[in-house]
Amino acid sequence: MLLDIRNLNVSFGSTAQPFQAVSGLDLAINRGEIVGIVGESGSGKSVTMLALMGLIDAPGRVTADALQFAGQDLLGMKAAQKRQIIGKDIAMIFQDALTSLNPAYTVGYQLMETLRLHTPLRGAALKQRALELLEQVEIPDAKSRLNAYPHQLSGGMSQRVMIAMAIACQPKLLIADEPTTALDVTVQAQIMELLVNLQKQNDMALILITHDLAVVAEVAQRVVVMYAGEVVETSSTELLFNTPRHPYTQALLASIPEHSKGAKRLSTLAGVVPGQYDRPSGCLLSPRCPYATDTCRTQRPPQLPLSGTSVRCFTPLNDSGIPSHE
């Protein structure tokens, strides 16, 4: 196992009235595997990954029972020691590539900065490696792009640069946080293809955070569904798309526009993810769940294994998509 997160909690705000952005999250990632994390905005997907990277600042608080990466304990590690892993073995790319690059430095500078930090490469060899990386992410005319400033690049091109920076030290795990959300549809497909190719070439694990279920269905081997800071369902891609067990997963799948063909209105799940002050005492989905019972409204469901998947629900759906108790 490459990454093992157990009982991860991330909270913000005062200690008296904390906002639980992520609670009791378990996540395991194997070497070379592609895992999709899905869920609507505010479900804690990005926060989980930022916590893993050590990028949550005070007053945010991160606790976990275990945070193991490639046999190393990230929790007890000193900051300086962790920085030797972050950016080298675990790399991350972000949603908005245009603002994720420093406007004051050239592409080459920012790329070589990572290499200089984590590799012994210097001088001409360093520049050569930077050039190779730009070519690897299929940037045309890579040589002149080294001297370009971020504002001279398009969104897709910037994301390619970000990817080049992320894979610079051949990480074992790449986290892509909605890497294509800010891009044109045509460019989205290219970037996804690039990511998957790189994943195969470098045999790295890829965590793909996205809203785009179609992308997940296409590339991911496993899917983690998150809602309001909790994992509600984990399963193989095939099982999840064929027989969703959690009502939230079912609603997510139903909201894919293609599934509403012929209907006048798109299928939606009413309401929004509960915020700091309107969290229900029972199951977090209960106010929005069409199948909620009294038990759902008063008690928190635990995460339980169920025919090859793992579901956090008192009344998981059966193969026909109906709650098991009905």
């Binding site: 990277m53 972050i86 950016g87 690059l101 420093n102 900065e113 930090l117 970000m162």
Partner: peptide, 26 residues
């Protein structure tokens, strides 16, 4: 608060380098 500071941190750069090289110049 900028995104590129987050990027710099995700690279594993030290706090001092982030402040002086990435933040101060901007």
């Amino acid at each position: 608060r900028e995104d590129y500071i987050r990027t710099a941190r995700a690279k594993g750069l030290s706090r001092g380098r982030i402040v002086i090289v990435h933040a101060l110049r901007n």
